[in-house]
Design a protein around this nucleic acid. Structure first.
Lengths: 129, 129
DNA sequence: TCAATGGTTGACACTAGTGTGAAGGTCAAA
DNA sequence: TTTGACCTTCACACTAGTGTCAACCATTGA
C-alpha cells in the first residue's frame, strides 16, 4: 500500500509517516517511480508508534525498543548488547512509573466523575438549583 | 519554602516551576521581597504534574484535571459544568488507552529482557561465542 | 491532451517544554 | 561593606512532532 492508504487506515497524517521514516522507525520500500510502498504488517507498527509517542516516549527511545516489541518480521535477540539491555530495563521501569501515574490519576478522575454525576442527577431529580 | 528548595525536593528545574506557574498549574504566594513562597502540599502537586507531562498530557489538559485529582486543599465539585464532565471523560478514556499501550509494550519488553538474559546467561555458562 | 489525484522533496512555522544567560534585587555572613 | 548565594524578569534558542505550502513528477480518465 502507498502512503495515502496507510495514512487513512491508521488515521495518521502522511506527514507523520514521513517523519517516522526520517527517524528510522519505519523504512518502506520504494516503487520504481519513487513512491513509498508499505507492507500490511506496518499498520500495527504505526499504531504502536503513535501510542508510544502519545504516551510520552520520544522517537529515539521508540527506535530502540521497537525491535523487541515488534511481532511482525523476525525477532532477533541476537544483537542484544548489555548496553541495550540496560536501556530496555530503564525504559521498562519508566513505563511502569507512567502506568502507575496514569492509573492513579485516572482513578481520581473516575471518582470525580462519579461524584459529580450523582450531584447533577440528584439536583436534577429534586429540581434543586 | 522558596523555589530553590522546592526544585531540590521535587528534582525539578526552577525553570519548569516558573513555567508551570505561567500555565496556571501552581500559583505560589509572594513574599514581601517578591520571592515565590510555596506550601508543603505543593510538593505532591509538582510530582503529579511532572508525571502527567512525562506521560504525554499537555499542561492545558493537566490544568483542567488537576482540581479533580488534587487532594490537598478544598475539592470543589461545585463548578462542574457538563462541558468539563465531557472533557474529563474524554481524558479518562485517553488515559486508559495510554495505560493499555504502555502495559502491552512493557510486557513485550519484559519478555524480551527475560529471553535475552537467559541467552546471555546460557552462552556465558556454556562458554559459547 | 488536459485535468485531477496523489506522490516526491524541501522549507518555513508553530506549540510545548526546557536550557541558558543577561541584568538586576535581597539577604546573610565575613 | 563587600562577597556570595539565591531570587526576580526577560529573552533567545533548542528539540520534538506536526501543519502547511511550494514546486514538481506520475498515473489515470475524460
Amino acid at each position: 500500500m502507498r502512503i495515502g492508504e496507510l495514512a487513512k487506515v491508521t488515521d495518521t497524517p502522511a506527514r507523520s509517516l514521513r517523519y517516522y521514516e526520517e527517524q528510522d522507525l519505519i523504512i518502506p520500500r520504494r516503487l520504481p517511480n519513487g513512491y513509498r510502498e508499505y507492507d500490511e504488517y506496518l499498520i500495527n507498527r504505526v499504531n504502536q508508534i503513535r501510542g508510544l509517542i502519545d504516551s510520552g516516549l520520544p522517537t529515539k527511545i521508540i527506535r530502540q525498543i521497537l525491535p523487541c516489541v515488534d511481532k511482525s518480521p523476525a525477532i532477533h535477540p541476537g544483537d542484544a548488547t548489555p548496553e541495550l539491555l540496560a536501556v530496555l530495563e530503564e525504559q521498562r521501569d519508566r513505563m511502569t512509573q507512567r502506568i502507575d501515574c496514569l492509573t492513579r490519576n485516572r482513578e481520581a478522575i473516575s471518582n470525580y466523575i462519579d461524584v459529580v454525576s450523582e450531584t447533577i442527577t440528584a439536583s436534577t431529580d429534586t429540581g434543586a438549583a
